[in-house]
């Protein structure tokens, strides 16, 4: 049980802030990658927690994230990076 908790802690302590860092800076594509990476990390955490707490009902969280995260990613892909039907130059995200 301890090991599961430790694994979740490691995931939260190292990759999660890194994803935040990526999501907060850089080009639109990089931000999107940061957010998607984080949902993967969160998904892993949600899979570890039922083990760590010995509660199988917590698995619903991972299930929910699994169906919602792709939708979220697609939304961002469409609006933040995609210029599929919005070709104004000022709509594109400038590099900073």
């Amino acid at each position: 049980m301890k090991a599961w908790t430790a694994a979740a802690l490691v995931l939260l302590a190292v990759p999660a802030p890194a994803c935040l860092w990526v999501a907060a800076r850089g080009t639109a594509v990089r931000r999107l990658i940061g957010a998607s990476m984080l949902s993967t990390v969160a998904g892993a955490v949600f899979l570890l927690l039922p083990m760590a707490y010995d509660r199988s009902s917590y698995q619903d969280l991972a299930l929910m994230l699994a169906v919602l995260a792709p939708a979220g990613t697609l939304v961002f892909a469409r609006f933040v990076t995609g210029h599929r039907h919005d070709a104004h130059p000022h709509d594109s995200t400038p590099e900073t």
Binding site: A16, R31, L38, A42, L49
Partner: peptide, 25 residues
């Protein structure tokens, strides 16, 4: 705002993890 939306979704995920570890699934 468009960038803030990305960070807000990151915040949302972070809050969800926090609530899970606070035993509020």
């Amino acid at each position: 705002p468009a960038r803030q939306a990305v960070v807000l979704s990151v915040l949302g995920l972070g809050l969800a993890v926090l609530f899970a570890v606070l035993q509020a699934p």
